[in-house]
Design a protein around this nucleic acid. Structure first.
Lengths: 189, 189
DNA sequence: TCACAAAACTAACGATTGTTAGTTTTGTAT
DNA sequence: ATACAAAACTAACAATCGTTAGTTTTGTGA
C-alpha cells in the first residue's frame, strides 16, 4: 500500500500550517487544498488538533530516535556533534514543513499532547547538554557557559529550515561542512 | 505625560501575543486583560492588525537605527560585530515580548505593513552581510559561506528571547561575553 | 452482480470572531 | 458649575470557525 489518504491530509496540512500558522488555516482551507469538503476530512482524522499532533510527533520521534543512535555510537565527541548537526540538516531537507510546524505551532497542541511534546523536547535538550558537557570535560570544547553553548547551536539548527527555504539549491556536503565549522570552530580566523 | 492608554494596550497585547500567538488572542481576551470591554479598545486603535503593526515596527525601527549607528561608528570590524550582538541582547532584555511577536507573527500583518516589514528586515540583513563580508576581506573572519555565517548568527540572536525566558536571572556581562565567544570564536578549544 | 467499506457529499449547529453604532461615564480645564 | 474630550459602556452585526449527523458516491473483492 502506498501513501494513505490520512497521510496526504497531514502532509498538506503541514504545508499550509508552515505558511500561515495553525490558527490561520481553517479546515475549509485545508479541504480546498485537498480538493474535497471540510467535513470529509473527519473520515480520516478526528480533529484539527489531532492533525497538528500527527505532524509534530512524526518529527519529534525521529529526532529522539536519531540522537539516541548517535549517543550509543562509539565516536569521539566532536564527531558525535557533527553527526547531530548532519541529522538536523538531513531532516530539514526532507521535512521542512514539519519542522516549521513543530517550532511555531506546538503551543496549539491539546494539553495532553503538549505535555508529551515538552517532555520529549526537554529530554532531547538534556541529551544534547550531556554531550556538550562531556566535550568540555574532555577538553574538546571550551569551558563556556553550557546553556549558552546549547542554546546557540540548537537555535541555529532549529531554524535552519527558514534558511533552506531561501537558498534551496545547495550542495549538501558544503552546507554541512560550513555549518559544522561555523557552529563548532567559529567564524573568527 | 506618562505612558498613554494606547501604549498600555500595545504592551499588554505584546505579552498576550507572545504567549498564545496573534490569532489565538481575541480582542475580548486583550480587553479582559486590560479590565475593559473589547469595543473600548477601538477608542485607541483602529484594528487588531494595527496593534500588531505598532508592536512590530516599534522594535524593527529600533534595530534599524542601531545597526546604522554601529556602521557609522569607526570601530574595527570585530568590535562592530560585538556591538551588534550586545545590542540584540540589550533589546531582548528590554522588550522580549515585542521580539517574540516580531519573529512569530509578522506573517499576520496587513499587506502594506508586511511589505514594509520585509523591506526593513532585508535591509537589516544586507547591512549585516556587508559587515561580515568586510570581515572576510580583512581576513578577520574565516572564508566560510557568507550566507551560512549570517544565518547562523542571526538565528541565534533572533531567538535569544526564548533562552532568556528560561534563564532570566543572569549576569549581563557574562552572557554577553559567552555569546560573543560562542558566535565568533566558536566552542571548540 | 452483489455486498461492503472507504470516502466523498449536503446541511446545519452553536460558538466565537473583529468590528460598528450609539450611549453613558469619567476626568479635567475654565 | 459648566463644557468638552477621553474613555468606558451595551448591543448587535455579519462572517467564519470546528464539528456533527445523515446521506450519497466510489472503489474493491467475492
Amino acid at each position: 500500500m502506498s501513501i494513505t489518504r490520512k497521510q496526504e491530509i497531514i502532509n498538506t496540512a503541514a504545508l499550509l500550517f508552515k505558511e500561515k500558522g495553525f490558527n490561520a488555516v481553517s479546515m475549509r482551507d485545508l479541504a480546498q487544498e485537498m480538493g474535497i469538503k471540510a467535513a470529509s476530512i473527519y473520515n480520516h482524522l478526528p480533529s484539527k488538533q489531532s492533525i497538528l499532533g500527527a505532524i509534530i510527533f512524526e518529527v519529534s520521534v525521529e529526532f529522539t530516535t536519531h540522537i539516541n543512535a548517535v549517543i550509543d555510537d562509539s565516536l569521539p565527541i566532536l564527531q558525535k556533534l557533527e553527526a547531530i548537526i548532519t541529522m538536523h540538516i538531513d531532516l530539514t531537507l526532507k521535512k521542512s514543513e514539519f519542522l516549521a510546524c513543530m517550532n511555531n505551532d506546538w503551543v496549539h497542541l491539546n494539553d495532553v499532547d503538549k505535555k508529551q511534546y515538552i517532555k520529549m523536547r526537554n529530554a532531547y535538550e538534556e541529551k544534547f547538554r550531556s554531550l556538550l558537557l562531556q566535550g568540555i570535560q574532555e577538553k574538546a570544547l571550551k569551558p563556556i557557559d553550557l546553556e549558552i553553548m546549547l542554546f546557540s547551536i540548537l537555535s541555529t539548527l532549529r531554524t535552519f529550515y527558514l534558511w533552506y527555504a531561501k537558498h534551496q539549491m545547495l550542495d549538501f556536503e558544503k552546507v554541512k561542512g560550513d555549518l559544522c565549522t561555523t557552529l563548532l570552530t567559529g567564524i573568527r580566523s
